[in-house]
């Protein structure tokens, strides 16, 4: 035996942090070059600032009695509601006298919370089930694949309508249900097919020969290799969660105090949506906000796509 050399090592966490920073920098570079990715990110950041500005405005220049998004009422304009945009109300007021801009800003927070919670739940479930199905195959795989078919074919909306009549649906419950349903749906199939391409790689066999069990292989080899795809799908799922919330709120199916969907619902309930072109400030701001935020997450997803799928990259 040759004499043992002793090596001096830096602490492992420091090295890992540096490696992470380096890969982050590299991927950030690619993301930046995609152009559309950073554009989406800027829009999202804009919404975040928009959201953060609300409490500041409320505690400084906006009178809570007038500007509260749910309980507010502007007594100076009695009889004129819904009032068109003015200096006091840059986006006008709704039929019961609340400030539209304030509602819009306040709702941003719940949209973010809902979209991101639902997407994280969806992707977590999808990633776990997808990799477990791919690794084990057989009955487990068959069960979850048929379940996915069921979830995809099931009238999702009708289910939510029924469910909200049994349990009052607040934002958090909605996020859980949408996230859960999404997770057992199409995304498991997509992530399973990704996991299958990983499963046949020789490094999986090498890990088995080293003595790694199913849990080890799924955690250390399959999941890390499908995680980029999962993350990509997460961005697209935020979009679909926000859309679904808007649609459900619009039909008045949710027990939510205020959201962009509710704003549209208020306008509809009071009969203003029919008079197209007149009371535009009732529907245009929430409509634009929904579209823009969904668009932004979609753009970020496309930007990530260029990192995850190198074939899309330009030379």
């Amino acid at each position: 035996m040759m004499d043992r050399t002793t090596y001096k090592f830096e602490p492992l966490w420091k090295i890992r942090l540096r490696l992470f920073a380096r890969s982050f920098r590299k991927n950030w570079g690619l993301f930046w070059e995609s152009r559309i990715g950073p554009l989406g990110l800027f829009i999202i950041l804009g919404f975040a600032l928009f959201m953060a500005a609300h409490p500041i405005l409320m505690s400084t220049i906006w009178d809570p009695k007038v500007y509260d998004p749910i309980m507010g009422f502007d007594p100076k304009l009695v009889g004129q509601h819904p009032a068109p945009p003015s200096w006091a109300h840059p986006l006008g007021t709704d039929p019961i006298g609340r400030d539209i801009l304030s509602q819009l800003m306040w709702s941003t927070r719940s949209e973010f919370a809902l979209g991101i919670t639902a997407a994280v739940i969806t992707v977590t479930i999808g990633t776990l089930i997808g990799s477990v199905c791919a690794y084990f195959g057989g009955l487990i795989d068959m069960f979850f694949m048929r379940l996915a078919d069921l979830v995809m074919l099931f009238p999702f909306f009708a289910l939510l309508i029924v469910m909200q009549s049994i349990i009052p649906m607040d934002l958090f419950k909605l996020a859980l249900i949408m996230g859960g349903l999404g997770g057992f749906g199409a995304i498991t199939i997509v992530l399973k097919s990704q996991a299958l391409t990983v499963k046949v790689k020789p490094y999986i066999e090498a890990a088995k020969v080293a003595g790694g069990g199913a849990f080890h292989i799924i955690r250390n080899h399959i999941i890390p290799n499908i995680l980029p795809i999962s993350f990509l799908y997460m961005m697209f799922n935020v979009t679909s969660a926000i859309f679904s919330e808007a649609a459900l709120s619009f039909f008045g199916l949710l027990d939510i105090r205020m959201s962009w969907g509710i704003m549209l619902n208020t306008a509809q309930d009071a009969g203003y949506l029919g008079a197209f072109g007149y009371y535009w400030w009732l529907w245009a701001p929430p409509g634009a906000a929904i579209t823009l935020l969904c668009f932004a997450f979609y753009l970020v997803g496309r930007g990530l796509d260029e990192i995850v799928n190198p074939r899309l990259r330009k030379r």
């Binding site: 790689k201 020789p202 066999e205 090498a206 020969v209 080293a210 250390n220 080899h221 890390p224 290799n225």
Partner: peptide, 19 residues
């Protein structure tokens, strides 16, 4: 497993690219 090991053919596919 400790006593018996294997070396694979393809050095490009037998190492996990994320490790």
């Amino acid at each position: 497993r400790r006593r018996v090991q294997m070396i694979f053919q393809d050095p490009y596919e037998s190492l996990n690219p994320r490790m």
